[in-house]
């Protein structure tokens, strides 16, 4: 049997393809490990309690931290969630439950295009629409920019997750004489909750690290939080500022901040994992 040529060829093809797949996996994971590892290795040595609790010191003075920037990022992400999440969920629900027609197709297309728009363009868009009329860079505009980035991601995830809820559950509810909106809110959405939460948290992780749109909106602020209509500090902006500076101490701070951001993404990912596994059992 083994001496049949076609069999041998198939065997060779099989091993070759499996080898290539393995190689591709190694490359993908290798790059990830390299990035994360390098960041962690460099960042952890400069990361300490002071980094989280202290504000920045003048150039040349050792120590200090990024308390303002951490706070700023939290405020921005919070604002983005506040603006973006309800709209995204409603849009997702609309697409899933009523999105069969032309309007649905149009909304879906817009969402997909929006998801593909470079974040810097969104920054400029918000700059023109919010920052210019307001006359100032602000936390508010930063939050709006991040919310817009979030919107298509969560809306499409919500849609997909709600579509995964079997039609039979909707029909069961409708056949009980439950109204459409109540069915969506109380049967379909809870059924898709795990997926929606996962999608939302991953979207949060993504916008927490966005830099480009913030440059045109939140701007950054060396001082503490001074109101939603004022510029606000953010970790990614500060990393960028420090990283392009010529000073070693600033580089160290940038590494520590990068470490913090990577950890943040990591923690959110782990939380998502934990959450989904808990809800699925």
């Amino acid at each position: 049997m083994n001496n049949r040529p076609s069999y041998l060829r198939r065997k060779i093809t099989n091993y070759t393809m499996m080898g290539l797949c393995g190689l591709a996996t190694v490359i993908a994971i290798g790059v990830l490990l390299l990035v994360v590892g390098y960041t962690l290795a460099n960042g952890i040595s400069f990361f300490n309690l002071e980094f989280v609790t202290q504000t920045a010191r003048p150039l040349g003075e050792p120590g200090g931290g990024m308390r303002n920037e951490i706070l700023g990022t939290m405020v921005l992400v919070g604002l983005a969630t506040l603006f973006g999440l309800p709209v995204s969920l409603l849009a997702g629900a609309y697409l899933s439950e009523f999105g069969g027609g032309r309007v649905g197709t149009a909304v879906r297309l817009v969402a997909d295009v929006l998801a593909g728009v470079p974040s810097v363009v969104i920054g400029i868009f918000v700059y023109v629409l919010v920052v210019v009329p307001m006359g100032t860079f602000s936390a508010l505009s930063g939050g709006i920019a991040l919310a817009i980035i979030m919107l298509p991601v969560i809306a499409r995830t919500t849609e997909e997750m709600m579509k995964l809820v079997p039609t039979t559950h909707r029909e069961a509810a409708l056949a009980l004489g439950i109204r459409r909106w109540r069915t969506i809110v109380s049967v379909v959405m809870p059924g898709a909750l795990v997926g929606i939460v996962t999608g939302s948290m991953l979207a949060l992780a993504r916008i927490a690290g966005e830099t480009a749109p913030l440059i045109f909106t939140a701007l950054g602020n060396r001082f503490g939080f001074s109101g939603l209509n004022q510029p606000i500090a953010a970790l990614p902006i500060q990393i960028w500022r420090y990283a392009v500076s010529p000073y070693n101490t600033w580089h160290e701070q940038a590494w520590a901040a990068s470490f913090l951001l990577v950890m943040l993404v990591l923690i959110i990912s782990v939380l998502v994992r934990w959450f989904t596994s808990r809800l699925n059992h």
Binding site: T168, H169, E171, A172, A173, A175, V187, P190
Partner: peptide
């Protein structure tokens, strides 16, 4: 319905 379809979240 054809297949048992209790609401899984309840």
């Amino acid at each position: 319905f054809q297949r048992p379809n209790p609401f899984p979240t309840m």
